[in-house]
């Protein structure tokens, strides 16, 4: 199963449409297989990001705020979306793999400096 997390630095990007980075991880039965890779796009584009989700056969998208039309598109393509997540993407991924990540979760922020 492939998981895509929209990213801005170490954090989940606060908006799907403004994300210019994505972290893609592959997991099997709740265990990561290999290191997650980061993809940097030339500019933020929700359309390009959605295309990437399709091309990479992503099963789960973990993101911040997302517009209804993009959310519906992903749902229609049978992709699970866990949205409105606040926190570091590595923590979000860990939580997801443990089955403990839910839409709207604010994760414990491990860094003192929260500036993006």
């Amino acid at each position: 199963m492939k998981i895509l997390l929209t990213a801005q630095g170490d954090y989940i990007a606060q908006r799907f449409d403004l994300a210019a980075e994505a972290v893609i991880a592959t997991a099997d039965n709740g265990v990561l297989s290999g290191r997650p890779r980061t993809i940097i796009m030339d500019r933020p584009s929700p359309e390009n990001l959605s295309n990437m989700v399709m091309e990479e056969n992503i099963a789960v998208v973990i993101c911040g705020g997302i517009e209804e039309r993009h959310y519906q598109f992903l749902q229609w393509k049978k992709i699970r979306v866990i949205d409105y997540i606040i926190g570091e993407h590595s923590v979000a991924l860990e939580r997801f793999l443990r089955g403990e990540l839910h839409p709207g979760d604010i994760l414990p922020l491990s860094r003192a400096n929260l500036s993006l």
């Binding site: 954090y11 606060q14 908006r15 403004l18 911040g64 705020g65 409105y84 606040i86 709207g104 604010i106 922020l109 929260l114 500036s115 993006l116």
Partner: peptide, 24 residues
């Protein structure tokens, strides 16, 4: 959509989800 108890202490951009030119 965030209650004050959840929002306090969180970096504002995470809560506001704005498109302000506010990188870093």
């Amino acid at each position: 959509g965030y209650r004050r108890d959840s929002a306090i202490g969180v970096y504002a951009e995470f809560i506001l989800r704005s498109n302000l030119p506010n990188g870093r």
